[in-house]
Design a protein around this nucleic acid. Structure first.
Length: 467
RNA sequence: GUCCCCAUCGUCUAGUUCGGCCCAGGACGCCGGCCUCUCACGUCGGUAACAGGGGUUCAAAUCCCCUUGGGGACGCCA
């Protein structure tokens, strides 16, 4: 069987956003699943709007996501000769022609067509004029006047479009640059793309492109049009909806595999499974299980998926990631081993890495940097409590083992001895060692902090209470 | 306006290929219980849908048609 070759062709006119990432993911997954090839191609024929900065941003996002390509990135702006060659060929063969109409004239045609209740189209007035090249002239494709163009969509089944619906679209612009439809076809054909998975807003382009494949006598690839992602108002997802770029999600503390997991489930399913590792996604992905209706992006579920992946990931890996997020907040931690001990306590409590970094602060702060708001001291460190905590601190100080079990025993026997409830001293201790009212379990927190920090912080907090 | 695509809980979806196992299952969210040193996690339970109308059939969420609704495309953007 023929080897599968897929591609992702972003245009560098903006950052890689959620929709694009999902399209890339589907193509990547399909290629990996079929042991095929995945190509990255930058569609920068619109020189006005394309920028190198966006190209860099897109590549960075792809790399961060782990959607690595086997070939490329190719740049359309570096392949102009190839496009021109194809366009000239079409003109020579009478399959395309030069058109002298101005943009204004074409606009007028469309306006009139619309007024007549027809589809706005170029009317083909230069079609048989036999014009040659010249300033201000474009090259248009001679779209068949009759018949229909049919293709079998991988998701939607047979789609037929009457050629009358199409007009003689532009292949080469006034400035000599090829248009999208020409460039994609030439690229996909010459790069040997076998399967094209893209948003279903491209369905209308497909017949035009098929006509070009036929005119150029290239084999036609398989097309699969995946439903679009909609905003909460069910309109096409856009910046207005707060549609964020992939890189923004990184800033917000999402794990790449979690983003990918959420995205793959948006329009694809595998029975009742919600959480997938990358390998599972590759193994289980199939075009047949893609859905064919548009879906709404749900940030709440993304959060949940992220929290699930945070729970799943090894503390060792998370420690490295956490270190970077802490650094962004100005906390430089050199001891990865310490972070690795902190992480397991924070995993069940963090939805994002940003959240984890926030919760990790009191662990990594120096003892003297812990702040104790007056209200907390007044509320929790009443004189009788202070007496208990002082005694407990003494007992802690004498310990050789500072593990959870030992601490539990020490505190347990103290409670029994004094006949008091744990509730009486739990929050006060927490305040002393963390400076806050919420934290992971007390004993595990103390163990991770270690004896020195725990005792120092207790003493320091108690000294504030006595003032 | 014209053409194209789509249609199961608020949202993501299973079920539709080969109609019966579905008075529709899972997940997010939300509500309540349990767990509990705080916050979470976890766990148990609840909430909520086959857009409407016609057919076909012994039997339809599943097949057909219509209506309605939603989305998309109509660029010398991609």
């Amino acid at each position: 069987m023929e080897k599968v070759v897929t591609r992702f062709p972003p245009s560098p006119t903006g950052h890689l956003h959620i929709g694009g990432a999902r399209t890339a993911l589907f193509n990547w997954l399909f290629a990996r699943n079929k042991k095929g090839k995945f190509i990255l191609r930058i569609e920068d024929t619109d020189i006005q709007r394309s920028s190198e900065e966006m190209t860099k941003s897109i590549l960075e996002a792809m790399e961060w996501l782990g959607l690595l390509w086997d070939e490329g990135p190719y740049f359309q702006s570096k392949r102009l000769d190839i496009y021109n060659h194809h366009i000239d060929l079409l003109v020579e063969q009478g399959k395309a022609y030069y058109c002298k109409c101005t943009k204004e004239e074409v606009e007028e045609m469309r306006k009139r067509a619309r007024e007549k209740g027809e589809k706005p189209k170029y009317d083909g007035r230069c079609r048989e004029l036999g014009l040659g090249p010249g300033p201000g002239r474009v090259v248009r494709f001679k779209t068949p006047l009759e018949g229909e163009t049919v293709f079998n969509d991988l998701l939607k089944g047979p789609i037929a479009v009457n050629n009358k619906e199409l007009d003689d679209f532009v292949l080469r612009r006034e400035d000599g640059m090829p248009t999208y439809n020409l460039a994609v076809v030439v690229d996909d054909a010459t790069m040997g793309i076998t399967h094209i998975l893209r948003g279903d807003d491209h369905i209308n382009n497909t017949p035009k492109q098929i006509l070009l494949y036929e005119a150029l006598e290239y084999p036609i690839p398989q097309f699969g049009h995946v439903p679009m992602i909609l905003g909460p108002d069910k309109k096409k997802l856009s910046k207005r909806h707060g549609a964020k770029s992939v890189l923004e999600y990184r800033e917000l503390g999402y794990l790449p595999e979690a983003l990918l997991n959420y995205l793959v489930r948006l329009g694809w399913s595998y029975k009742d499974q919600e959480i997938f590792t990358l390998d599972e996604m590759i193994e289980k992905f199939s075009i047949e299980r893609l859905s064919n209706s548009a879906c709404v992006f749900d940030p709440e579920k993304l959060k949940w998926v992220n929290s699930q992946h945070i729970k799943k990931k090894s503390p060792k890996e998370l420690a490295i990631i956490l270190k970077n997020y802490l650094a962004k907040d100005g906390f430089t931690v050199k001891d990865l081993g310490y972070l690795e001990k902190i992480v397991p306590l924070l995993q069940p409590r963090s939805t994002t890495m940003v959240e984890m970094a926030e919760k990790a602060r009191f662990f990594v702060k120096k003892d003297q940097e812990i702040e104790y708001p007056k209200e907390l001291i007044d509320k929790f460190l009443k004189p009788d409590v202070v007496t208990h905590l002082k005694e407990l601190t003494n007992r802690f100080e004498r310990l050789n083992n500072f593990d959870q079990k030992t601490l539990e025993n020490v505190v347990g026997s103290y409670l029994e001895q004094k006949n008091i409830k744990f509730k009486l001293i739990a929050q006060p201790i927490r305040i002393c060692i963390t400076g806050q009212t919420t934290s992971p379990g007390l004993f595990e927190t103390m163990e991770v902090l270690g004896k020195d920090r725990t005792v120092n912080r207790l003493k320091r907090a108690l000294s504030f209470a006595e003032k």
